[in-house]
Amino acid sequence: MTVETQGDTREGTSAAGPASPTVLDRGRPASSADLRRRADWIRLGTIDLIEQAGLGHYSSTFSCAEIFAVLYYHTLRIDPANPAWPDRDRLLLGKGHVATGLWPVLADLGFYPKDWLRQFGKLGSPLNDHPNMRLAPGIDFSSGSLGHNLSVGVGMALGGRLAGRDYRTFVLTGDGELQEGQVWEAAMAASHYRLGNLVAIVDANGFSGGGPTSAAMNIEPLADRFAAFGWRVSEINGNDVDALVETFDALPDPSGEAPVCVIARTRKGHGVSLFEQAPQAWHLGLLSPEQKAEVVAEISGRMA
């Protein structure tokens, strides 16, 4: 038997060093207008993919479109030519059902050919409603079962410390996902191990699949709760690209002693009136052709 090569091996530094010309470094220049347009471009791409598949998560993905735009076009240190580069920053999708919004981004950055998007929703496609790290380059961990990925992120952050690497591990969670008990096991472990290289971004859009998050089970006050678990917390408007840029630019050095929680207050379905008015109804759905035309016109009008 041979050892399966899984992700980045400890010998994997030969894949690419930081000097590789294909590395996209932290803090890449991007204007506010560009990032806002990029978020809307993600929304349009999501609409197309969901139409292909016949069903999908619109409003959850739309709430974090600005977060995706800022992370992938400004903040993350990544190398699309070497998805397993050991020194890359990681992004885990705790709320795996927003992967649809990531597929156009990873294709655009060159993690895989753009024509992979045309396979979305078809049998055998590497791109699914929830992400699979074995199939999709650029996906740092699979998800779909809510509550796991902050723990996985703790493992990656610990791994960075053990290997002496300075990458950051970002974990995007939903606010409803924080109802899962395992998240708080991970939150405890992150501060216990002083994982300043771990960043939790809570896409706090206020809704889970069944309705308002805190009506199902109150999770507030989120900032106090993470602070009580030993995290360094900031709370921002998560649909404001400037606030996101400022917050991510000001992240403490990964060698810091406290994990960082960014509570991104977002609007579920942000950027589309139809979704904003009924975010719960558009948690999972399919736009009719007429609705699609209306929604695309609203987004495109803003991008012009």
Binding site: Q6, G7, D8, T9, R10, E11, G12, P86, M133, D140, F141, H148, N149, S151, V152, G153, V154, G155, M156, A157, L158, G159, G160, L162, A163, T169, Q182, E185, A186, A189
Partner: peptide, 15 residues
């Protein structure tokens, strides 16, 4: 449960 998922994260780093 946390220990299982943390181990998964470590395994992706080559441990």
């Amino acid at each position: 449960t946390n220990s299982i998922s943390v181990a998964a994260g470590l395994a992706t780093c080559g441990f």
